[in-house]
Computed example of a mutant assay.
Amino acid sequence: MRRSPLFSGVIYLLLGVLFTYIAIQTVNDSGWGFFTYMLIFLATLDIGSGFRMIGIHFKIKNAMNNKK
């Protein structure tokens, strides 16, 4: 069973928000460190992938509607 790009995009966005939240909490507790930079990097990748997957979903949906 395949997941839709919309579902995957939402999951990626949620993970990006979660990583950002954890990074903010880490900065408040112990300041900027390697772990914080790693979390921000992962959040950036996840949010970017989420937007890309959602865009792919709408491109596929638009292509399917244009075929009909």
Rank of each mutant, 00 (worst) to 15 (best):
R2W: 05
R2I: 07
R2M: 07
R3W: 11
S4D: 13
S4R: 09
S4Q: 09
S8D: 15
S8F: 03
S8Y: 06
G9T: 03
V10S: 01
V10H: 02
I11Y: 03
I11G: 03
Y12I: 00
Y12D: 02
L13K: 01
L14Q: 07
L14C: 07
V17A: 12
V17I: 12
V17R: 00
L18P: 00
L18E: 05
L18H: 01
F19P: 00
T20L: 05
Y21A: 01
Y21S: 08
Y21E: 04
Y21M: 01
I22F: 06
I22K: 08
I22Q: 08
A23I: 07
I24E: 11
I24N: 14
I24G: 13
Q25M: 12
V27A: 12
N28Q: 14
S30N: 15
G31L: 00
G31T: 09
G31P: 02
G31M: 13
W32Q: 11
W32N: 13
W32H: 11
W32P: 02
G33H: 15
G33C: 04
F34T: 12
F35R: 13
T36P: 11
Y37C: 05
Y37H: 13
Y37L: 08
Y37Q: 08
M38F: 11
I40Q: 00
I40H: 00
F41C: 06
F41N: 07
A43D: 04
A43Q: 01
T44Y: 04
T44L: 01
L45I: 11
D46M: 13
D46I: 00
I47C: 10
S49Q: 06
S49P: 01
G50E: 03
F51P: 00
R52T: 04
R52H: 04
R52C: 02
M53A: 04
M53F: 09
I54D: 06
I54Q: 01
G55E: 08
G55H: 05
I56L: 10
I56E: 03
H57W: 13
H57Y: 13
F58P: 08
F58H: 08
K59H: 11
K59I: 15
K59Q: 13
I60Y: 07
I60D: 11
K61W: 10
K61P: 04
A63K: 03
A63I: 09
M64D: 10
M64L: 14
N65F: 15
N65M: 15
N66V: 14
K67H: 12
K67L: 10
K67C: 06
K68M: 05
